[in-house]
Design a protein around this nucleic acid. Structure first.
Length: 214
DNA sequence: CCCAAGACTCGGTTACATCA
DNA sequence: CTGATGTAACCGAGTCTTGG
């Protein structure tokens, strides 16, 4: 996020005397947007280069014009080829290295933001899915109960009808007579219909169940 | 094909300015 | 004054290209 509005004084406060441009910066100072009018800053201690002299003026805030133009270019493409970088640097009155660094940092910020957005989207999808799973599990339980009741009912009825008439047409709803009813689901063991491999299931999905309980 | 040098990128870090 | 935040600059490691 790049906003000069967060810096007190706006652009006028960012004016930097041309004398503060490092001597090695010969990038059309006339065309160069002015920099912030702050004292040359101490450079990082870690720096071990011999060119410590021009380190002092390095960390300058870029002006809003510079940032705008950089942003425009970044909007077009996230990577600059060498020639374009040099032209842009000349146009901005910056060292091509500075332009390269700006693009590098900008890519990093863009990536971070993108990851954040992706994470947020995935999180929403995940939460929706977990919710849906909870509903489906509740429905499975309900259906399981209904199935169990129906099974009992069928057993009762068949026990009764066994004693009465063996020749009459059997009910169309008979699991004994119609193994396809459950066999179609690949289920052989009716009693264990919802309980086989339960331990694995619980271990594997424990985190989801915890979410359901939240 | 191998290797060294240079250019470039990336992730991580540092130093600094600014703000609440 | 202080901690949090944003960002320019830096660093080290990795990749790719090029020339010998």
């Amino acid at each position: 996020m790049i906003t000069n509005s967060t810096h007190q004084g706006g652009d006028q406060m960012l004016l930097l005397p041309r004398s503060l441009y490092p001597g090695s910066f010969l990038y059309n100072p006339v065309a160069a947007p002015a920099q912030g009018e702050t004292k040359p800053r101490r450079r990082r201690k870690k720096n071990k280069g011999a060119e410590a002299a021009d380190m002092a003026a390095r960390k300058r805030k870029l002006s809003s014009e510079q940032v705008n133009l950089l942003e425009m270019n970044f909007g077009n493409e996230h990577k600059l080829e060498s020639g374009k970088k040099d032209r842009l640097a000349a146009e901005l009155g910056l060292d091509p290295k500075q332009v390269a660094v700006w693009f590098q940092n900008r890519r990093a910020r863009w990536k971070g933001k993108r990851l954040e957005e992706e994470f947020s989207k995935l999180k929403n999808v995940h939460e929706t899915t977990v919710l849906e799973k909870c509903h489906l599990e509740a429905e499975v339980l309900k259906l399981k109960e209904q199935l169990s009741e129906a099974g009992k009912e069928i057993r009762k009825l068949s026990e009764r009808s066994d004693g009465v008439s063996s020749g009459s047409p059997s009910s169309s709803f008979s699991m004994d007579a119609d193994p396809q009813f459950l066999g179609g689901f690949g289920v052989d063991d009716f009693d264990n219909l919802f309980y086989s491999n339960e331990t694995n299931y619980v271990y594997g999905m424990e985190w989801v169940n915890n979410l359901c309980e939240m």
